[in-house]
Write a protein that binds this DNA or RNA. Sequence first.
DNA 1: TAACTGACCGCCG
DNA 2: ACGGCGGCCAGTT
Length: 111
Amino acid sequence: MIEKSTNFFEDAKAIAKLIPTGRVCSYGEIAKYLGATKSARMVGWALNSSKPEENIPAHRVVNRKGLLTGKKHFEGPNEMQLLLESEGVIVINNQIQDLDQIWWNPNEELL
DNA sequence: TAACTGACCGCCG
DNA sequence: ACGGCGGCCAGTT
């Protein structure tokens, strides 16, 4: 019934699921991997459309600066940060530390 | 129906 | 170095 342009959304969710624990990625990188470098926003939309039941670690997906821009879309304001810290990711002031350390590039890892 | 917004990113001034 | 704006796609009002 609803399998048409959702391909991009499905892929975005799939990539998010592929993100290993303790790692983070940016919307742009995911979008780039999907072939839509300029459609980074759609990646976020895909996660928003997705539900917690989908087991999608959206908290591992952050913006280019490593800032938890989508934390407000979670159950709680600190849910995202707590999840990241729980996985070993250092997050201070809604910003991920050691980005170069935990960064996960789909183009390199999944290549 | 048409227009705006939205978990962003990159470019230009 | 910092600020502002446009572009992408789809969903919502």
